[in-house]
Design a protein around this nucleic acid. Structure first.
Lengths: 236, 236
DNA sequence: GGCGGCCAGATTGTATACGATGTTTTGCAC
DNA sequence: GTGCAAAACATCGTATACAATCTGGCCGCC
């Protein structure tokens, strides 16, 4: 039972209440219920979660550090609106670290982990064939989770956190500049990578990963989409 | 005294006041004026910088996110005390990203950059031959600045921030587990790397970088230096 | 004498209050 | 109607206040 992909939930280090809010907003951003540029005023966020501005502020600050929201002095916080240059840097960083993470993960991977990955792929594929906003959002999340899970398996919590940030910001970039409506990742490519890992063909797996990232990047163009502002994003 | 208040610059990214405090504390940690495990109570920090707990808290939170301080719920903030496992992860991450950064940097490097790097090395060497706490601290900082500067040259601000975190945390690790008293980095190795870059021998530069990191790591004694957690202390 | 509970001090967690700084709107002159 | 200025508004920046929680010591009870 030493699946490396299990220790995820140990987070506690910072505050109490702010954490929840931060995670909720981050999830909303990653799933694209919150679009880039959406204003996140401290009061509004506080009211939404029934906490004071203090906690809302702390959450927004944390997200700002992750690059998911940008706070402008005396003006407010907004869901980050990555510039094309930032987008380039994000994917450059991913090309730089993901092969390395992949190698580390491959070195420590267990059968349990592979099972877990395959399960993720299955889920991803299922969501991909469905219709509707909800399925689409879940698919986006699942797609990112694949990359994230590799980082978890690598056993390096620092790289894991870093990948979390990169995946989240990628989602933002894709929301802004992605052309093909559907997924943030070619689904089949994920499967190919797992297969390559299973076959112990590390170099090929890395190549596949690089191609995969390149494919995502190739789907980008400079365009803009409409937001669905904060209130609609959270109420049921 | 506000000896720490030196930079009157108009920082912008996050808040106003908290930024200064965060930077001041971070610098103190990196230069090892603050030892791992030192308690940083919000009130004390606030008093030191003549601000309220609100700002002190924000600064500590930010540092917590960088992994330089660990805050324990309802107990307070402490200068991080990296475990051997964390130390391994930090250097593993460095091995993973620094060659990549090096390659990117080499691709974009300008003669000015090389001059800058050489100047850094000179300064580093000068400090190395001096005696005294102040020189030692400056040397530590300069040594880290070399790696950081490479990240700056790479032009990727995300990797730059990441390296900032890794270098800072490395300093903590070295403070805890380093054996050879002196520097955090073999100075000559830095020079060799620059030379290799200048000679366009990229692969060799990467190899040198890896060896360099390995050397730093080899100087560590990843055994406990102080308390080892009470449970581990009595079982085994 | 040892042990458990209770009270006091300290420290963090969260909320609210007030001042500072932009942004928008209004009103007036031209 | 247009343009500028000043006030009203909204929002953030920081400080302070109060509640919750932890720590450590004191005291009575066994």
């Amino acid at each position: 039972m030493k699946s490396a992909a299990k220790a995820q939930q140990a987070e506690d280090s910072t505050d109490t209440g702010a954490q929840q809010i931060r995670d909720a907003i981050r999830e909303a951003i990653v799933e694209r219920r919150l679009s880039p540029g959406t204003k996140l005023s401290e009061s509004d966020v506080g009211n939404l979660f029934n906490v004071s501005r203090t906690l809302a502020r702390a959450a927004l600050q944390a997200l700002s550090y992750e690059g998911l929201v940008s706070v402008e002095k005396n003006r407010g916080a907004f869901v980050a609106y990555p510039s094309p240059e930032e987008a380039r840097q994000i994917f450059s960083a991913r090309r730089l670290v993901e092969p390395g993470i992949l190698r580390e993960a491959a070195a420590r991977i267990t059968p349990d982990d592979i099972t877990h990955l395959r399960q993720l792929l299955l889920e991803e594929g299922r969501l991909m064939s469905e219709r509707g906003q909800t399925a689409r959002r879940a698919e986006i999340k699942a797609s990112g989770d694949f990359h994230l899970t590799l980082a978890v398996i690598s056993g390096n919590s620092i790289m894991q956190r870093f990948m979390e940030e990169l995946v989240a910001r990628s989602s933002l970039v894709i929301a802004l500049y992605g052309q093909s409506t559907a997924s943030s990742c070619g689904h089949s490519e994920h499967g190919d990578i797992v297969s390559a890992i299973e076959a112990d063909e590390l170099d090929r797996a890395c190549q596949l990963m690089l191609h995969h990232i390149a494919h995502i990047e190739a789907d980008l163009d400079l365009r803009e989409r409409k937001s669905l502002g904060l209130k609609e994003a959270f109420e049921l």
